[in-house]
C-alpha cells in the first residue's frame, strides 16, 4: 500500500499521468526564466531521490503507465505553439521514461546523470525562450518567422538546442534512448516499439517547432541578435554536452 503511495508521490516528479499535470501547471505559472530553469534541473532529481531513497520496488504497472504518459505528451506536443509549454511537455515525456531506466537496475549515479543530461538542453531552451519573449513579447511559433535571416546566431543556437533536446546524436539523450530500446527489445519488444514511436514524435515536433520559427520570410524590423558572450557560453555548454554524450556512450554501450 505504502509502495503505491510512494510511487504516486514520485509520479509527481517523475511524471506519471495524471500527476504530470502538476509540473506543467507549475511551469506555466512561473514567469521568471531562471526559476523555471532551476525547476527543470531539480524536478526529476526529486523524483529519483524519492524512488532511490525509499528503496521501493517498482511494480510492473508503472511501465505501461510511464510509456503511456510519455507517448501522450509527445503526441500532444505536435500541435503546441507556445515554446515554454512545448518545453514542459517534452520534459514530461522524457522524464517519465526514467522509470524504465530505474526498473532496469541502472546504478544510482547513472540515473542521476541520465536525468541531468536529459534536462540540460531543456534548461537551455528555457533561456532561449526567455530571449524570444524579450525580443518579441512571446515565445510562439508562426507569429514571427525567418529568424534565420533576422537573428542568425540566435537561430543557430536555437536549432542546435532543439536538436539536442529531441535525442539526436551525439548528445547524451540519444545514447540513453538507444540503451533503453536495446534493453527492452528482447524482453518486451512492444515497449521498444513504443519507445521508438515516441522518439519519432519528438523529432516531428522538433521539426515543427523549428519550422515555425526559423524559416520563412523575414520581417524588416530590426531585432538584436545574440551577443558574443552569450553565444560562446551556449556553445561551451553544448560542447560539454556532446563530450558528456560521447562519454556516456562509452559507459552505456
Amino acid at each position: 500500500m505504502t509502495e503505491s503511495i510512494i510511487i504516486l508521490l514520485a509520479g509527481i516528479f517523475l511524471p506519471l499521468f495524471p500527476m504530470s499535470m502538476v509540473f506543467n501547471a507549475v511551469i506555466e505559472s512561473i514567469k521568471h526564466a531562471w526559476l523555471r530553469a532551476v525547476l527543470f534541473v531539480v524536478w526529476p532529481l526529486c523524483g529519483l531521490s524519492i524512488v532511490l531513497y525509499s528503496k521501493v520496488v517498482i511494480p510492473a504497472w508503472v511501465l505501461p503507465l510511464a510509456l503511456t504518459t510519455s507517448a501522450l505528451y509527445a503526441l500532444r506536443m505536435l500541435s503546441l505553439r507556445e515554446v515554454n509549454q512545448w518545453n514542459g511537455f517534452l520534459a514530461t515525456s522524457l522524464w517519465s521514461l526514467l522509470w524504465l531506466a530505474a526498473m532496469q537496475d541502472t546504478s544510482e549515479i547513472l540515473l542521476y546523470s541520465y536525468a541531468l543530461s536529459m534536462s540540460a538542453p531543456l534548461v537551455l531552451l528555457v533561456l532561449l525562450s526567455a530571449g524570444l519573449e524579450q525580443r518579441f513579447g512571446a515565445a510562439y511559433t508562426e507569429l514571427y518567422s525567418g529568424l534565420a535571416r533576422t537573428i542568425p546566431r540566435f537561430a543557430g543556437v536555437l536549432v542546435t538546442v532543439v536538436v539536442a533536446a529531441i535525442a539526436t546524436p551525439l548528445f547524451p539523450t540519444f545514447f540513453i534512448m538507444l540503451d533503453m530500446v536495446v534493453e527492452t527489445i528482447s524482453a518486451t519488444p512492444f515497449a521498444a516499439m513504443v519507445l521508438l514511436f515516441i522518439w519519432l514524435l519528438w523529432s516531428w515536433a522538433g521539426a515543427r517547432l523549428i519550422q515555425g520559427l526559423i524559416v520563412g520570410r523575414a520581417s524588416d524590423i530590426k531585432i538584436v541578435d545574440m551577443n558574443f558572450t552569450t553565444i560562446s557560453l551556449f556553445s561551451l555548454v553544448l560542447m560539454a554536452l556532446i563530450v558528456a554524450g560521447i562519454y556516456l556512450s562509452g559507459v552505456i554501450l
Binding site: R81, E82, G137
Partner: peptide, 13 residues
C-alpha cells in the same frame, strides 16, 4: 491571421 500580439497569444488560443 498572424496578427496577434505575442504576449496574449497563448491566452487567446
Amino acid at each position: 491571421g498572424k496578427r496577434i500580439l505575442p504576449a496574449m497569444a497563448k491566452r487567446v488560443e
